[in-house]
Nucleic acid binder design. Sequence first.
DNA 1: CTGCTTATTATAAGTATTTTAAAAAGACCT
DNA 2: AGGTCTTTTTAAAATACTTATAATAAGCAG
Lengths: 389, 389
Amino acid sequence: MNAQIGGNPVMLKQMNKSQILQVLFKKSPLTKADVATQTQLTFVTVSNLITELQNDGFVREMGLAVSTGGRKPLLYGINPDAFVFAGIEVQVERLVCVLTDFENRVLNSRIVAVDSLEGPVFVARKSREIVVEMLEESNLSMDLLARVSVSTPGPIDREQGVIVSPPNMPNWRNVPFRDMIQAEFSVPCDLEKDANAAALGESRYGAGRGVENLIYIIVDVGIGGGIVLGGEVYRGQLNGAGEVGHTLIDLNGPLCNCGSHGCLESMASKSAIERELSGPFGNELVFEELIQRTDDKRVRESLLRSGTYLGAALANLGNIFNPEMIILGGELATGCTLYFERAEAIARRRMLPHFVHRVQIKPAELGKLSGAIGAATIAWQTMVQSLTF
Amino acid sequence: MNAQIGGNPVMLKQMNKSQILQVLFKKSPLTKADVATQTQLTFVTVSNLITELQNDGFVREMGLAVSTGGRKPLLYGINPDAFVFAGIEVQVERLVCVLTDFENRVLNSRIVAVDSLEGPVFVARKSREIVVEMLEESNLSMDLLARVSVSTPGPIDREQGVIVSPPNMPNWRNVPFRDMIQAEFSVPCDLEKDANAAALGESRYGAGRGVENLIYIIVDVGIGGGIVLGGEVYRGQLNGAGEVGHTLIDLNGPLCNCGSHGCLESMASKSAIERELSGPFGNELVFEELIQRTDDKRVRESLLRSGTYLGAALANLGNIFNPEMIILGGELATGCTLYFERAEAIARRRMLPHFVHRVQIKPAELGKLSGAIGAATIAWQTMVQSLTF
DNA sequence: CTGCTTATTATAAGTATTTTAAAAAGACCT
DNA sequence: AGGTCTTTTTAAAATACTTATAATAAGCAG
């Protein structure tokens, strides 16, 4: 998560400050000497910079460490109260919002039914209302809000901050949502694709804490993927990377709505299972209940079959990326053990033997908040990287 | 391809120098003012640093640019004669060696039959002999040799510089080849997996010049892959990334020697085609000739079938990585139009419509030298990043 | 409790680098 | 030849890190 390289002495100082903040963020209570070791800077430099960061409110003292024979060293950590970040996930029928502090811990969260059909202007205004509400509830001043980030269905143009053409939000074509949010909140904003945001969220605060390379798969109506390599989102050429759902599993499989045949999405997603079981069960049951009916043979078989397909895709991802972890999100993966375990079993069977014992396959931990938390994380990252201290 | 971040003023200077060299490398004849613009440094700084780099022989003057109304500016570029790098690819039955200059252009190359069964010690000595021979032939002093890099079959332990367990080189288990080469040449050395090296080589000097994100697939007896993201090799957790050959294409396909079923490698590789055609043709023909017999229906069908499988895999890679380019290497892909074109056609048919027109699919351009050139590139990169000027 | 040892923190002088500002050099035009 | 514009060099000023030194605080022993 590095940014600038080279420059002038002022830049150097800010790079060093950024370094220090990142080290303090990762392993909080540290002495100045610890930070010096970790950042490869001299003690004096670290001492001066930390003092400065402390005076500016970014860093706080955290008590004394035990003595190792001399004076007790002071411990330092990020001052969580320095800033507040907001992460907002725009979904078709609702808004998921979180407030995080400068340690990027969740202070408050809210899931509100908001119909995206009301349009971007409405949604932007509503977003602000929700955030303001949360700030008030948590007794926080609006002034503390440093950045906002938005997680949204793709495709997006990240550089321009534009939502391009979300398939299920027809009236959101080419919407400059970043600027709209910036206008609404009067703070900088970034856009990120929902799967990417969720992947980053899980990688920092969910199942993937401490992991460098991971793949996050969200199984829902469709199947999406977010790729985190070296701790950062990999986005590809046009923010398009991660379309795992349109990975081919069966050359002669059914037609997918992308135009190809045998895509994972058409064979292992929520919709695929619903379609398969709509015959026997009709509209009798909602999906959440349906997937619990594992005593029913047809349900069982359907879940196992789609789990198998997913597993094969996971094996492919494992072999291609050789990641430390694969995380599965969505109610199907996190709520249905039968499905998850089959997918994991197949994945392990089909992955290269050399890799199998070094990859973890886990359900997501942040549930519905993962995208919003990921967005807030991006706000944090951008802030710390921007070096404006 | 950034490395260090932050530090002290000396470091800052070296980062700036490195920056300048990289800019100069990318778009050679540039004025000091151009470099200043591109590096975001002031003119004076750039001027001083370039003068220093010039005095040390890393940079050279390259004539005068046209006047824009005042004094003619001097043009500068990398001094190709500053260093020589050697790239060595260890294959089962031969050594491929190249010599490159500080602009990383190939000065000399050699492909020598060397049986790896003779063992690492022999191969290391032989490598040195070949390099020395090439240096003499090109009238270059050994002192100019700055670094050597080795491309080798995986898996490897890059950090330790150890070749771990190459499947087709049984007497090369856990060989500390990096240190052996360093001892032999008395210059630093790096190891890289063959597919990764080839991918990097193609990305810098072959089909992928100027491309940020690309996937390189080598179709031979097996099928391997090298992944270059953001201009750098992506290696995954254990240098294991890129096992595209063991990507599943057909859930119920034939058993692969990796233990899984329906892997790409077992269905689209040279071996797969040879196996398929060994019935009709026996040992009558060598492979190179066999794949030219496209008038024969059985050959044709075999090639088209495997091309289809490969194409499906390419579509998957395109959807997962959204790269600017996919490069196909190996004699089958570069020498057999029927196979290549089928693969491309299928890939384009099955890739997401949004991506199709933004991805190039190209045959490799460096042929047998790609791995060695890639290795030399790594030597260059490491040198420039190490900031020891 | 005092003095000694050790480790942490603060201060001050020294060194390296970039920046700003100004002067010099070179090219083109009239 | 003189004027104007651009490039290049030079010198002083600003900034930041480093080294060396001094001050502070904690623990321990007598």
